[in-house]
């Protein structure tokens, strides 16, 4: 970093007050802060080199010491921070609990100026968890989030899970979500569609037709759930490129016709449009290979050190999206 005096001179120059600095003057200004020129061989004597090596050695030792110190303290700080957040989130979880009552959730989101039309979440599948509980837990989490979204009035929920294991359990997942919706809403539950890109949609497995026509007028609404995996990310872009290449090779398309709009339409129709809000439930702020094209303007919500899916996180994300302040308690 440059000293205060030099900064002053630089700013005066940038503002073009008085006569601007010449190249030479600028160099003079910065000379003390520049790294030393690359050492030329043979200009230093052996003795000098030896002394330099010794001082270099001690310098490195000092650096290692400071590095160890920094990380010891940082590890301590992180531990404290995790505890603090764990306690804080517990308090939030007690203050904001949905009691499986749609009315409560509706009341929670009533004051918000806007709600996402398309909500997306990233969930993690842990196959290491004993037995097959990893999968059961994943389905459980999706069912909960789907129920909250239906209560809040969000029509489209997309769930990203890297491995895509759920795509082979679509009927099971549909049943689990429908059951959860029933637990929240009773018999007049919203209609539910579950689908994944390039797979047939699974609509209302168990709901009878008359209740569906009922929902058209004043019913509890409709929820679509979309399952995504790493395949729908970069691979989809690669597939599109392959198709376009084939067309171009058969002279059915000129490469100049490939525009942002064309790609956008194709990607939107084959997977999905841009989500409005993306909630990360894990502790790390990483996208894990989430579809790149669609995440352009999506608001990314995360809270530090969180582990697990909780209603309070969901609600805080909606508040943040609606640019509203959260009051403590209801």
């Amino acid at each position: 970093m440059v000293g205060v005096r030099e900064t002053e001179i630089y700013r005066r120059d940038a503002r073009r007050e008085g006569s601007p600095l010449t190249a030479k003057q600028r160099e003079e200004l910065l000379r003390p802060y520049l790294p030393s020129p690359p050492p030329q061989a043979n200009t230093v004597s052996r003795k000098q080199r030896g002394a330099r090596a010794v001082s270099e050695f001690f310098r490195i030792q000092l650096y290692v010491l400071v590095y160890t110190l920094i990380h010891t303290f940082f590890g301590l700080y992180m531990r404290l921070r995790q505890w603090y957040h764990a306690v804080l989130y517990r308090i939030f979880a007690v203050l904001y609990y949905h009691h499986r009552t749609p009315q409560l959730i509706q009341k929670d989101v009533k004051g918000l100026s806007r709600l996402p039309e398309h909500l997306s979440v990233i969930l993690e599948y842990n196959p290491e968890e004993k037995g097959g509980e990893g999968l059961e837990q994943l389905i459980e989490e999706i069912a909960e989030i789907a129920a909250w979204s239906a209560c809040a009035g969000i029509p489209l929920l997309s769930v990203y899970e890297k491995t895509g294991i759920l795509k082979s359990y679509i009927p099971t997942t549909h049943r689990a979500i429908a059951k959860r919706l029933q637990a929240y809403f009773g018999t007049r539950r919203p209609s539910l569609q579950l689908r994944a890109p390039h797979l047939p949609a699974f609509l209302n497995g168990d709901l009878v037709d008359e209740s569906h026509s009922d929902s058209n007028q004043d019913g509890p609404g409709h929820l679509s759930v979309l399952l995504l995996s790493a395949e729908d990310g970069r691979s989809t872009m690669v597939d599109l490129t392959k198709t376009l290449t084939e067309m171009s090779q058969r002279s059915k398309l000129s490469p100049n016709d490939i525009s942002v709009d064309l790609v956008d339409v194709e990607i939107r129709e084959s997977t999905m449009a841009e989500p409005d809000l993306l909630i990360l439930f894990g502790p790390d702020v990483e996208l894990q290979g989430y579809p790149p094209w669609q995440i352009r303007l999506t608001e990314i919500f995360h809270v530090p050190d969180n582990t697990g899916v909780e209603y309070q996180i969901f609600l805080r994300a909606l508040y943040r999206f609606g640019k509203a302040q959260m009051r403590f308690g209801r």
Partner: peptide
């Protein structure tokens, strides 16, 4: 602002750490 805003969409892949 917690958005990518059309920057490095392709490059923010598996293990890119995002710091807002």
């Amino acid at each position: 602002v917690e958005r990518l805003s059309d920057f490095m969409l392709w490059q923010c892949h598996e293990n890119t750490h995002l710091a807002f």
